[in-house]
Structure formats: structure tokens, C-alpha cells
Design a protein around this nucleic acid. Structure first.
Lengths: 323, 323
DNA sequence: CTGAAAGCGCTTACAG
DNA sequence: CTGAAAGCGCTTACAG
């Protein structure tokens, strides 16, 4: 049997109420000597608080549910790790689920989280896997994308500026026509990126699914048909990695024949061949704001700025690997 | 206020016991007509089971704690997603934490999981972040690596065979001397891989931390000194990606001047430049066995076989990206 | 097949 | 500053 507060109280010669006051640091004060006796007794018995019992009584489980489309995708993985760390800092445990870009799986995950009495929900939703959460008492924060029918908070980076920076940088490299590789549809944050490209540049709009493989197949086909872009902004790193893979396999000279800038800046970008110039999403600030908002704090109104990290794929020099 | 079993019972004209029997499908039988009334009442009221209360009473939280060194590393991310999916299939929610390769953070995460009354613990531990878990009643499964002082179950791939396959493949490409890039110390599964290389090949043993950056710096230095290996087996994909990045930046011809085989086979390998030949860890089977073992099932004794996936970095032809 | 009731281990108003 | 006791929402032996 596990050690309970009653065991600790007995050994310390006090009541369970006082033991609870000690471990919660309230809501009633405890005399220093009593506190020490309680702490000593707890240590001797190897007491560990049962947070399930505390959750039932207090209404707070200490759990936060995090839904990500795919935890293997470096973009979502980076965001997820930052969120987990912020939540841990706030004393919350992170319950995670992969939605697989699927609305039904996302809904099932959220249902499970709510049954587990999570204190909040952070939903990193890709296009499509939408549908607002039905949860009166549980705070919800969307990151990256929010379904149309939801009134919950949304934390997102400044996608307009991100694309404008990418276009401007390729222009500085002397490119007049700048193409754009978007997602399959016109939904979510990539739609914003696409619109920002339309406003800033003239060129062809390419489309493919948000996977490395889809992008690689597209580029392999264009290379075979000698219809490759000269300068290309790619909506996501995942697609950009596919572009690089196919270009590399086809022997295309980057950045000479094809100059590339991507829009996520996941940790992959520094280690591709050639290294990938990207407008880097402010992952840390996004995570910080999402968690603060979830916990009911006020957060700044201004969108989170992304900044461009120049590497080799655009035509800049790659920073050397420090010895 | 949330809807409770008492509300459902009242509306269905029965007792909370019967409502519980219906939702748990036991332990007592319920007449079909009664069951239907209960289900109808629950649907009308929008009832959602409170698993915290169920956990307190039944002793099972439905939560499993998963500790990973770093959820952004594609190797751990791939393993983590498979584990999460297996656990979801078994009706468990996954609580996740990053240990950051740090023993204290790992211990803190485990302590938090135990306080949350997890039904089990899956610990994917890297070298160093060890220390056995003190948890009498909670089943523990280690994946990849188990601390010396632990008697818990370990699920790992057949690392000897993995390296033997890599060495044999480079030999088929005509390489006599085959070097090996290991981790900084001689601990954990990479120690097994290193020993397997020693047994199978003659060459130089290189070492660096398990990061892309460390591997890239090492290769940049060796390239500058014209001391690059001709054929190299790399212990992990993370390091191999760093090797490719530095080789690419230095203009080294792969596989002509340097032939490479890695030992993880994370999803990255198919999209590097050149594509990365790797002995692929059986992620799915590892996850399946880990979860089955955690839930108390018997699992096969034989180590899980890895197999080699030939791509361009060893000298084979890269499979084309399907159009 | 159904129901009344105890109890899981906490937290917290309330009384002292 | 401390303690006795109610109660969070379930599950489950037990009685019928």
C-alpha cells in the first residue's frame, strides 16, 4: 500500500489537514515546528502526494492536453518541446496526442483529454483537422491555426512579414521573378503566407501536400521537364527538405540554378545540403505566450515577429561549422 | 457544473451503480432495456466520464508516462510517436517529458508521473541519464538503454547485427578499411554497436557527442586536414546528418570520396543529400513490444532485427522519387 | 438483474 | 495555529 497523508499525520502527531497545508503551502498557516515534523515524517515514510485524489477534490488535475498533427515533423516537434518545457515550468504535466492531420483523431484525443480532466488544451491544428472544442470549463488555446467556428485564443507568428522578408531577400540576390510553393488548399496560416507572396512578388504558384515526399516528387518532375523555378519561396521546411532532396538527386545546382528560402526555420535547416535559408518562427515566444494565455495571463497583442536566417540555399555564404 | 453519473442515473430512473456497470461493461450484467435508457440519458445530458474519480477509486489512471531524451531528435520522435499510438490503441493516454539527456530532469519527470498515478512508465534513456526508478507498484519498461542498477524490462534492437550489416554492405562496395563514428563514451547501446564494429572491421574509431553539430565540426576539421575516412559507419542518424552537412559544405564527394552507412534509419534518411543508407531500427516492433510488456503481456525473447535500407550514401543507386 | 452504501486520498470551509 | 469532518465522482463488494 502506498503511504497516505493519514500515515504522515499519524507519524508527525498532527492531522491530515495540517499535512495538506504543509504540502500546498496553504490555505492555512502552519507553525514552523509543526511543518518540520510533517516534512520529516513524510521523508521517513517516503510519502508521495497522490495527485489524482487532489485533482478530484480540488478540480485541478495538473495536466494539460497537447494535440499535434505529427510529433515527428520537426516543426511541430520543436513547438511541442518548447510547449512541454513551458508547461513543466508552470507545474503542469503534458499529455500528448498525434492527430495525424485527421479531424476525427483530433476530436477523439480531445475527448480523452477532457475525460482526464485536463486543466487546459493546447491544439496545434493543421488545415482541415478542425472543429471547435466543446468544453465549457476548460480553457483552450490554438497555436498556428484556429478553426473558423472557434472563439478560442489563437497564437500565431506574423506570417505576412515572414513571407515579405523571404521575398525581399531573394530580390536582394537579384531575382525578379520569385515563385511560391504552397500547400494543397487555401486554408490556415499557409493561406496567409500565400496571400503575402501574391502581394509581394510575381511568379508561379506551385502546390503540393505538406510532406517531404510530395515536394520531392514535384521537383523531380519539374527538373525532368526543365521547368524548375529560378527562385522559390517554400511555405514549410518539410516541403523545403523535399525540394532539396529532389534537387540534390537530380544534380541541380543550388543556389546557382535554384535559389531557395523556406518559412519555418526548424532545427533541420542548418544541416541540409546546401544549408537552408529560412525565416525562422519564434518557437520559444510562441510557446511562452500560448502557455501564459492558457493559464489566464494577459499576453501582448502584437503578432510575434519572425526573422530571416541567411544560409547557403538563397545564395548567401553558409556559416562554417565552428571547430 | 459537469454532468455526473448521479445525474444520468436520475434521468434514466436507475442507480449510479448501474450507470457504472454500463460504462465499464461490468462487473455486473445490465438488462438491455436498462442499458439503452442509461445510454440515452447520458447522450441527452452530454455526460462525460470523470476519469480522475474513476482513477481514485479503481487505482488505474489510464495514463502512461513516457520519458524521452529529446522529442525533437527524429530517432526519439519516431519511437515516441509509435509508442503514443500503441498506447492510444490500448486505451492509455501518454504523458510526455523531455529529459534533455539529464539525470536530474529525468528523475524529476518520473517523480511527477508517479504522483500523477501513471499506470506505467516507459523510459527511453540515453547514456548517462540513468538511475533506476523507485516505484514498487508501477511497471517500468526501458527502451533502447537500461541503467545498470535496474532490474526492469529492456526492449532494444539487435545492435550487433545492425552494425554487422552495415560493415558487410560497405565491404561489398569494395571497402577494406571501415572507420566508425561512435559517441563520446562507452555506455549504452552505442557501446554495443562499437564492439560489434571492432569485431567486424579494421579502421579508426572516431568519437563525438550525439549531435549533428558535433559531427559536423568533427568532419569539417578532418576535411580541412585531409584526414577524412573513405568508408564510415556512423552510430546514429543524428551524427550522420551532421557528417553529410559538413561534407556537403566542404564539397566532399559522397559516396565517391566518403561512403557512409548509418545505424538508426529515422525518416530523415530518405531526404538527405545524398540520401542516407541506414540500418533501420524496427521502430514499430519496438513500440509494440514495449507497450505489450508494460501491460503485462509476454513478449518474444528474440532481439528485434534491424535491416539495411540501401540508398545513395554507401554507393548504391538512390531510389527515385515516384512521380 | 438492480441498488444502497462504503470508501479511494485528498482539500477546504468551519469550528475551536 | 490546529483538527474533525464533509465531500469531490466514481467503483465495487454486498445484499436483495
Amino acid at each position: 500500500m502506498a503511504v497516505t497523508m493519514a500515515d504522515v499525520a499519524r507519524r508527525a502527531g498532527t492531522s491530515v489537514a495540517v499535512v495538506s497545508y504543509v504540502f500546498n503551502d496553504g490555505p492555512r498557516p502552519v507553525a514552523d515546528r509543526t511543518r518540520e515534523r510533517v516534512l520529516a515524517a513524510a521523508a521517513e515514510l517516503g510519502y508521495r502526494r497522490n495527485r489524482v485524489a487532489a485533482a478530484l477534490r480540488s478540480g485541478s488535475s495538473g495536466l494539460v492536453g497537447l494535440v499535434l498533427p505529427d510529433t515527428v515533423n520537426p516543426y511541430f516537434a520543436t513547438l511541442g518541446r518548447r510547449l512541454e518545457q513551458e508547461l513543466a515550468g508552470a507545474g503542469k504535466l503534458t499529455v500528448i496526442a498525434n492527430s495525424g492531420y485527421d479531424a476525427d483523431r483530433q476530436a477523439a484525443a480531445i475527448e480523452g483529454f477532457l475525460a482526464a480532466q485536463v486543466d487546459g488544451l493546447i491544439i496545434v491544428s493543421a488545415d482541415g483537422a478542425a472543429g471547435a472544442v466543446r468544453a465549457a470549463d476548460t480553457p483552450v488555446v490554438y497555436v498556428h491555426h484556429r478553426p473558423r467556428d472557434s472563439a478560442a485564443a489563437l497564437i500565431a507568428a506574423d506570417n505576412e512579414t515572414a513571407v515579405a522578408l523571404a521575398v525581399a531577400h531573394l530580390r536582394e540576390h537579384g531575382h525578379g521573378r520569385i515563385d511560391f510553393l504552397a500547400g494543397p488548399g487555401d486554408d490556415g496560416p499557409v493561406a496567409t503566407r500565400t496571400a503575402a507572396w501574391r502581394a509581394a512578388a510575381t511568379g508561379e504558384l506551385l502546390r503540393c501536400a505538406y510532406t517531404r515526399d510530395a515536394a520531392a516528387r514535384l521537383i523531380a518532375r519539374l527538373a525532368a521537364e526543365s521547368r524548375l523555378p529560378r527562385a522559390l519561396v517554400v511555405a514549410t521546411d518539410e516541403q523545403a527538405v523535399g525540394v532539396l532532396a529532389a534537387a540534390g538527386a537530380a544534380g541541380v545546382d543550388l543556389p546557382g540554378a535554384l535559389a531557395l528560402v523556406s518559412c519555418d526555420g526548424s532545427p533541420d535547416a542548418a544541416f541540409t545540403v546546401p544549408s537552408l535559408t529560412a525565416v525562422e518562427q519564434p518557437f520559444g515566444e510562441l510557446a511562452r505566450r500560448a502557455v501564459r494565455r492558457l493559464l489566464g495571463e494577459a499576453i501582448p497583442d502584437d503578432p510575434v515577429r519572425a526573422h530571416l536566417v541567411p544560409r547557403r540555399s538563397c545564395g548567401c555564404a553558409s556559416p562554417p561549422f565552428a571547430r
